[in-house]
Amino acid sequence: MKRLTAFACLLCIGSIVHADEAPRLSAAKTAAEADLVDIRTLVPDIAEDIKYAGHDNFVGAPVDGYLAPKCLLKRPVAQALARVERDLRAQHMRLKLWDCYRPARAVAHFVRWAHDLSDQRTKAAHYPNLDKRVLLGDYIAPVSGHSRGGTLDLTLQRCDARDAHCHPLDMGTPFDFFDPRAHTDTPDVTPQQRANRQALRKAMERQGFRNYPLEWWHYTWAREPTPHTIYDVPVK
């Protein structure tokens, strides 16, 4: 258990930066200065439900820094994700994106929320089996890999033969469900749910993305352009 906790503290929601080098906060003020691009400039009709831009998330409110429901990523990461989507469409499947680049101020919002033990509004939906006191550290980190622009949260959809209707596959838990059942390889899901998670992982790994094993939805591009730099550019 101690080893698992230590591992979680290093990776948690945001895959903390490499332990041997502290993250540097970029001076970039705009997405262009940070070389962050909107994925829809590459895939105009990619499915998105950017959770932190609205109320349907574990905080229960729009998160600081999300001024628009957009998926921004470092340019080569966006290009790799576009290739994943292209490959999937040949199989009548598609991605659905929940979060991509995450401003540093959004991570600070998460930390403030975790410290507010009186706010239990989202417990039933996001951490029904945990005391909120344990979320900070094991699940919510003070520095997030998302803030580097190389990490994203997503799921997999299956479409009909005409690609007219696409529906998310059953992965066993919702997004941002803080529980061991969200671990990618947990035995506590059905064989079909496990197979769906593996299908997503295989599709992402083919283009160089690596899964964070405690969250089936969480992927980081292995060749991050700025692995020691975080950004605080608003999403807009």
Rank of each mutant, 00 (worst) to 15 (best):
A106G: 15
L88D: 02
S118V: 06
K29R: 15
E21C: 14
D35R: 15
H92L: 02
R24Q: 13
L95C: 06
R102D: 12
A32T: 12
I39A: 00
C100F: 03
A68Q: 11
H92C: 09
M93P: 01
V37M: 03
D87S: 13
Q120S: 06
K51N: 08
P44V: 05
C100D: 08
P44C: 05
P62S: 04
R94G: 08
Y66S: 01
V63K: 01
R94F: 00
P69M: 02
P103I: 06
R94C: 08
H55S: 12
A82C: 05
K29H: 08
L36S: 05
V107M: 01
R24L: 14
A34M: 08
A31G: 11
S118D: 13
G54A: 09
E48K: 06
A90P: 00
T122N: 08
Q120M: 14
P23K: 07
K70H: 14
L97S: 05
F110K: 09
V111M: 03
S26V: 03
A61R: 15
E48Y: 09
H126I: 09
I39L: 15
R40Q: 14
D49F: 09
L25M: 13
A80Q: 13
P69A: 09
R86N: 11
I39W: 02
Q79I: 14
D116Y: 03
H92Q: 11
L88F: 03
L42R: 09
A22T: 14
G54E: 07
A125R: 15
A82D: 02
R75Q: 14
D99S: 14
Q91S: 07
F58A: 11
E33W: 08
L73K: 08
V84G: 09
S26E: 01
A90L: 13
E85V: 08
G65D: 04
A53D: 04
P23T: 06
P23Q: 04
Y101F: 10
A78F: 07
D49C: 07
